[in-house]
């Protein structure tokens, strides 16, 4: 009597789950929804609202890909992953792509066999410290207690930074951002270190944000981006060019407001190629011709996503900085759609 639940679940769930085979695109289309691995919760990047709808900057990328592939930005199942389980979830095929502020590194790309499809946020590791301590540079942190989230590259960067500068510190590893925040506010650590975006987001929610400073040193490069499995280049291309389409859309002034109008055809051939009114780019990556239109409509172009979830008008309050278009002195540079 009791084994049945197991087997019933096996038949029902096991049959619906796809294999980690080669053609992810076919799987996704057959399944009717995209499985996207996200953070269990990170302010501005991925969090559920009170209706259970996931929102955030990383989530926006998932929705754009779902819109490009399936035409429906809501056709996403969000699979929450921790720092430790994220890579296995992707490798085993549990998720089709991972949009979980993951740093692009050599070993992850080659040793762990993943393919980073671009960078959706250029970040770097920083330090936050209470103003009253009067510290102005990270080099003055000799002997300080540092709160740090485990399971990320920040641990290694931190160890390297203090080793290179030959100063001592006391690491306090913390499992989640919420705990780290609580520890830092209670003064159990002098410094909180994580990606600068996370620091800004965390500081924004403090009762007295002005009492804390983020030190000028950024001690690492943290290019965060979505990633897919090695070996399925078609699928990797789809995710990469969806991200590029969002970036290019901002560059060419395509927004969710004017996209319907522009999709009628313009006199800019690049825009026309992106939006599928000219050429057959969609066909080349195995999608409908209006794939990019759907992707941009899902949440707007890169700039709109940024403004909505993490930009200066939000509580997170991040400035564009490195994440501005190359035309504005940033690093965002979408290859040509040609």
């Amino acid at each position: 009597m009791t084994k049945s639940l197991f087997l019933g679940a096996l038949t029902a769930v096991g049959l619906t789950a796809g294999a980690a085979g080669a053609a992810t695109l076919d799987d996704v289309q057959a399944r009717g929804h995209l499985n996207c691995g996200v953070n269990t919760g990170l302010v501005g990047f991925a969090a559920p609202d009170s209706n259970g709808t996931w929102e955030g900057f990383d989530v926006g990328v998932c929705r754009a890909v779902a819109a490009a592939v399936l035409g429906d930005p809501m056709a996403v199942e969000f699979v929450t992953t921790t720092g430790q389980t994220r890579f296995t979830a992707l490798a085993s095929g549990e998720v089709d792509m991972l949009a979980r502020n993951t740093t692009w590194t050599f070993t992850r790309d080659n040793d762990l066999k993943f393919e980073f499809t671009g960078v959706n946020y250029y970040d770097g590791q920083g330090f936050m410290i209470p103003k009253e301590l009067g510290v102005t540079s990270a080099k003055d942190l000799d002997g300080a207690t540092v709160c740090i989230q485990t399971g990320t590259t920040t641990e290694l960067n931190l160890a390297d930074f203090f080793r290179v500068n030959n100063i001592s510190y006391e690491p306090v590893p913390i499992e989640t951002n919420a705990e780290a925040q609580q520890q830092y506010l209670a003064g159990a650590c002098d410094v909180y270190t994580t990606d600068a975006s996370g620091l800004a987001a965390t500081r924004a929610t403090f009762e007295n944000p002005q009492e804390h400073v983020i030190l000028p040193e950024i001690i690492s490069k943290e290019p965060l981006g979505p990633l897919v499995r090695h070996g399925d280049n078609e699928w990797g291309d789809i995710v990469r060019w969806t991200l590029n389409a969002l970036v290019a859309a901002e560059e060419y002034g395509i927004t969710s407001a004017n996209i319907d109008e522009l999709a009628q055809g313009t006199n800019n051939p690049e825009i026309n190629r992106i939006l599928g009114t000219e050429g057959n780019l969609g066909e080349m990556i195995g999608l409908e011709s209006d794939w990019a239109v759907n992707a941009i409509k899902a949440g707007g172009n890169y700039g709109e996503l940024f403004e909505r979830y993490i930009g200066e008008s939000t509580p997170v309050g991040l400035s564009r900085g490195l994440n501005a278009q190359w035309t504005n002195g940033g690093l965002l540079y979408a290859p040509p759609f040609r």
Binding site: G44, A46, A47, T80, A178, A204, T314, V316
Partner: peptide, 8 residues
């Protein structure tokens, strides 16, 4: 509870 705290 972690996810809820992750909302702004």
């Amino acid at each position: 509870s972690n996810s809820i705290r992750a909302t702004t």
